[in-house]
Amino acid sequence: MGMPNRKYADGEVVMGRWPGSVLYYEVQVTSYDDASHLYTVKYKDGTELALKESDIRLQS
């Protein structure tokens, strides 16, 4: 078993793309699913969504 190939840690605050949009919002990573390679993130309004790594970026 190798290390999970994840870029962002639980609790890390990053920018997540809103689905169907080009806009990124501040989100907190809450979990990562090794099987689906999706991150569960929480937006400031409390919305929780699963995002692909390509829809997440570090805060500038």
Results as ranks from 00 to 15, higher is better:
residue 1 M to E: 14
residue 2 G to P: 14
residue 2 G to F: 06
residue 2 G to I: 11
residue 2 G to T: 11
residue 3 M to I: 13
residue 3 M to K: 14
residue 3 M to L: 13
residue 3 M to R: 15
residue 4 P to I: 10
residue 4 P to A: 11
residue 4 P to E: 10
residue 4 P to H: 10
residue 4 P to Q: 09
residue 5 N to I: 15
residue 6 R to V: 03
residue 7 K to M: 09
residue 7 K to L: 13
residue 7 K to P: 04
residue 9 A to S: 10
residue 9 A to E: 10
residue 10 D to E: 06
residue 10 D to Y: 05
residue 11 G to D: 04
residue 11 G to C: 07
residue 12 E to W: 06
residue 12 E to T: 10
residue 13 V to F: 14
residue 13 V to Y: 13
residue 13 V to Q: 08
residue 15 M to A: 06
residue 15 M to I: 06
residue 16 G to W: 03
residue 16 G to V: 14
residue 17 R to G: 02
residue 17 R to V: 05
residue 17 R to E: 01
residue 17 R to K: 11
residue 18 W to V: 09
residue 18 W to C: 09
residue 18 W to F: 12
residue 18 W to R: 10
residue 19 P to R: 06
residue 19 P to S: 03
residue 19 P to L: 04
residue 19 P to F: 05
residue 20 G to H: 07
residue 20 G to F: 07
residue 20 G to C: 08
residue 21 S to I: 03
residue 21 S to P: 02
residue 22 V to D: 15
residue 22 V to A: 14
residue 22 V to F: 13
residue 23 L to R: 10
residue 23 L to P: 03
residue 23 L to V: 13
residue 23 L to W: 11
residue 23 L to T: 12
residue 24 Y to M: 06
residue 25 Y to H: 10
residue 25 Y to D: 06
residue 25 Y to P: 01
residue 26 E to Y: 09
residue 26 E to Q: 11
residue 26 E to K: 09
residue 26 E to T: 10
residue 26 E to H: 07
residue 26 E to L: 12
residue 26 E to D: 05
residue 27 V to W: 03
residue 27 V to Q: 00
residue 27 V to Y: 05
residue 29 V to D: 00
residue 30 T to I: 15
residue 30 T to W: 08
residue 31 S to T: 07
residue 32 Y to M: 02
residue 32 Y to N: 00
residue 32 Y to T: 00
residue 32 Y to W: 09
residue 33 D to T: 03
residue 35 A to S: 11
residue 36 S to R: 10
residue 36 S to Y: 08
residue 38 L to A: 06
residue 38 L to Y: 10
residue 38 L to E: 09
residue 38 L to D: 04
residue 39 Y to L: 01
residue 40 T to Y: 12
residue 41 V to H: 01
residue 41 V to Y: 01
residue 41 V to F: 01
residue 41 V to G: 02
residue 42 K to S: 08
residue 42 K to V: 14
residue 42 K to D: 01
residue 44 K to W: 13
residue 44 K to P: 11
residue 44 K to I: 10
residue 45 D to M: 03
residue 45 D to R: 02
residue 46 G to D: 05
residue 46 G to Q: 05
residue 46 G to L: 05
residue 48 E to G: 03
residue 49 L to F: 15
residue 49 L to M: 11
residue 50 A to Y: 15
residue 50 A to V: 14
residue 50 A to N: 14
residue 50 A to L: 15
residue 52 K to M: 12
residue 52 K to S: 12
residue 54 S to T: 12
residue 55 D to G: 03
residue 57 R to P: 02
residue 57 R to M: 15
residue 57 R to Q: 11
residue 57 R to S: 09
residue 58 L to C: 11
residue 58 L to A: 15
residue 59 Q to Y: 14
residue 60 S to F: 13
residue 60 S to T: 14
residue 60 S to C: 12
